[in-house]
Amino acid sequence: MRPFDFETHNADLPPRTRINSILMLLTALGMFALGMYYRNDALTATVAFRDEINGISAQLPANWLINTDDPNVVLRVEDVGGSGFNTRIQISIQTVGPDATPRNVIDQLSVQGPFQFPSYGLLETRSIRLGEDEATLIEYYYVASETNPFLETIPVVVQGIDLVVIRGNQAIIFTFQDDRRTFEQKRRYFDRFLASVEY
């Protein structure tokens, strides 16, 4: 015996109605598929970034706010549509000596961190490969709080990554920062960015 046994009474439906129902179903499925396609496209859409002066190019998430005016960084992009800390990807460059290693730069960043960010702490340091290059990465956290006393904003624990590669006498630092609660979920933006970056 079949687990479900339905008694059907569609023998009386005229063929046109049956075809219309099928077409409607197919249309709905098609629209759903199209919606999913556009949604995924919107979520994964990118814009090209190219900095001729520093010789860096990458694909950036679309609809993120792009800042190239800050003299301290090459690029900063932020997701300003979020609800809380704005997810951030950043490229900065430091001049280093000819014998410098990524680890030297990481040590310097680790020392500077507590002076830049409240409640700064290190989570992990490890070496990875970025394309052909050796890179060193640190994960850290700090507390971001609203400084305007007229606004009631609960501080956010921010998790961040600084990834350092050496290019000649320059250390290129790729940074990703996000609210600790959505860090893993949004890290794919950083991974896609790293996969596209050329320097």
Binding site: N63, L65, N67, T68, N148, F150, L151, E152, T153, I154
Partner: peptide, 22 residues
């Protein structure tokens, strides 16, 4: 076009939705 150079200022709402342009 999502360029910061177009932005005069921006602010994020607090937990009650209040904001103040800095």
């Amino acid at each position: 076009v999502w360029d910061e150079s177009q932005v005069l200022s921006r602010a994020q709402a607090d937990r009650n939705g209040y904001y103040q342009i800095p």
